[in-house]
Design a protein around this nucleic acid. Structure first.
Lengths: 352, 352
DNA sequence: CCGGATACGTAAAACGATTTACGAAAAACG
DNA sequence: CGTTTTTCGTAAATCGTTTTACGTATCCGG
């Protein structure tokens, strides 16, 4: 059905090799022949078959991406960024979702590798990245993004999670909040743990005890559910610090459900920064992750590796940014102070 | 680096053809040989090269998806749905974004087709789908989703846009709203036009004139901007009916910016239905598009086509659902009535 | 015990590209 | 002008599979 290189060769009256050279630019071809080949190709609607090309040349022009969830805008934004970086280098992207399940991750990864991609970008579903052995065996360069295994030997791109946690905690404590609830997706993930560490550090620096911490899972539904349960008995918190996208949503939903107003009754600080956070009322104070840049960095590193550069492994740690909006306000009854201890513990939670 | 079928064959003491048969199941192989081949493959970490396999067999196990914007959750949800349908059939998905630009659409599409995918799922950036000729020439089955060309001869999956428009308009008019502003992305898109038609029809049925209509573009930034401009001079509207995701966000953002409260001062009805719409305050009344189902349907049809079934072209028209939440309320000063004419025109817009 | 199925493995020819080795013509050089 | 070099096209080999054609062994009925 589709024209092959031979059809073009015949039509242009040259050999297949010449046609190949015209398109790949691997060797120079006389101008008049180039013209004839181009013309013939145009007439036939010919375009080199990438699968065949990759097979023979051993150079893949496809990159694989493995993410935990294609419904999470954080991951898809990352893919968007990577896709637009890739394209400049004539690459295409093949994607798969592990659905946050290690077993699926393994099979999906195997399927991706079966295409012999030039490289892989992985966001593991658990941060041991148990399926890593498959990639190692395949011998292709890869970079782990966002969720990096402990003692990982390889390229990685993350944000500075401890610092992000500190920024968030600083902001809330600076506003006088002492009863802060930290809403994590799951402590099984290292990035989440690191954010918590940053937060706790600030608490310690201020002479405060550890903040209340709850785990609410990886999607909106379960997050809302668990938060609703939690809030049942909770009356003291003056601020919620949500460590992920869906955790933020869950907090908002259950606060609203219980009729507690933001920021009058309780402050909310979220993670990730999407359009809707700016649009809603009140606009959300949030820690912005540099998604766009993460994607670019990941590809930059992979490109070097593909080119065969033997640079040492690197862990890029990008900085988050605190976007202060109006969902966070001074704690009720607390003057805006940095004095340690005191306050908080006994601060009456205004109920809605 | 990676083991090939020959390595496995040698190790198992059989021919390459036999190894192929073991993995493809194309012909039966004696049990003991199967065992030996499997064992050898396991030891070598062998997995058939999909590119090579596709080249020889002429059967592609990859599907291409072309969308206008990977940062729009509507499109990525669609991809998520398709990906999970595909996987059940052993397919993988390769994606590209046209960035809402016909020229880019053309080059990206060409790149996708160069992989000789088994099928294509396309969401054109303009609804003529000007690059369609490329797909036709490639001779692969494809389905157009969401944005369907006029008089399109082919498979398509959309929602019932006129009906969606009617539902939305009915809801608002039923609440007594007469000064409704319809916020479209761009009238260049047929689905948007159809939604408008549905809306206008309801207006006519109620003896009302045409609603105010503004176009705000395809992304959040420009939408907010244009809406801010628009609202500068606007004081009468009691309800905004946003026809897309980003339009909805734009409406919320600029209303908030001008200090108009939802739903007390003005009602807002949005399109698409995402987690954040449920989570925010007030929860948004919205028209929910069956994204998940759209993806499934698209793949179902493609699967038939790939299998060679010669069914006639179909345009699947799925139903949207109105999710009534609290961002829409009875119009101020208007009793909840269906009486035509009167009202509206002169209803004072409460300013914030 | 013979003839014809049946079962199943192997060698070799594809698939559509790239790359290598070679050769003919043109160009450069002394 | 003869020799060497450069330029550039072609034929053939090759990438890792699948598939076709063929061969050998086993089985079965008569």
């Amino acid at each position: 059905m589709t024209a092959s290189i031979k059809d073009v060769a015949k039509k242009a009256g040259v050999s297949a090799g010449t046609v190949s050279n015209v398109f790949s630019g691997n060797r120079v071809v006389r101008a008049d022949l180039v013209e004839r080949v181009r013309e013939a190709a145009r007439e036939l609607g010919y375009q080199p078959d990438r699968a065949a090309s990759q097979l023979r040349a051993g150079k893949a022009r496809i990159v694989a991406a493995l993410v935990p969830d294609l419904n999470n805008p954080f991951f898809t934004s990352l893919i968007a960024s990577i896709e637009s970086s890739l394209r400049a280098d004539g690459m295409d992207i093949i994607v798969a979702s592990s659905n946050d399940d290690p077993a699926e991750e393994r099979t999906r990864l195997a399927a991706l590798l079966a295409w012999r991609p030039a490289a892989l970008i992985a966001i593991p579903c658990a941060d041991e990245f148990a399926s890593r052995d498959l990639v190692d065996k395949a011998g292709i360069p890869y970079v782990v993004v966002d969720r990096v295994p402990h003692l990982f030997e390889g390229d990685a791109v993350t944000v500075d999670n401890p610092e992000a946690g500190r920024m968030a905690a600083d902001h809330l404590i600076g506003l006088g909040h002492r009863n802060i609830v930290v809403v994590a997706s799951t402590m099984k993930l290292r990035n989440i743990r690191e954010r918590c560490e940053g937060i706790e550090q600030v608490f310690t620096d201020h002479g405060l005890g550890r903040p209340t911490l709850i785990e609410v899972g990886l999607d909106f539904e379960t997050a809302s559910e668990r938060l609703a349960d939690f809030m049942e008995g909770e009356r003291q918190a003056t601020a919620f610090l949500a460590l992920t996208n869906f955790a933020t949503l869950g907090v908002l939903a259950s606060l609203h459900q219980r009729g507690r107003r933001v920021p009058e009754d309780v402050s909310v600080l979220g993670f990730d920064d999407y359009s809707w956070m700016r649009a809603v009322n009140p606009p959300l104070t949030a820690i912005r992750q540099p998604v766009e840049e993460m994607g670019r960095m990941a590809w930059l590193r992979l490109r070097e590796r593909i080119a065969g550069e033997d640079v040492p492994f690197s862990r890029m740690r990008l900085n988050c940014k605190l976007m202060v909006r109006t969902s966070t306000a001074p704690a009720v009854g607390s003057p805006q102070t940095d004095r340690p201890s005191s306050a908080g513990r006994s601060a009456p939670a205004k109920t809605g």
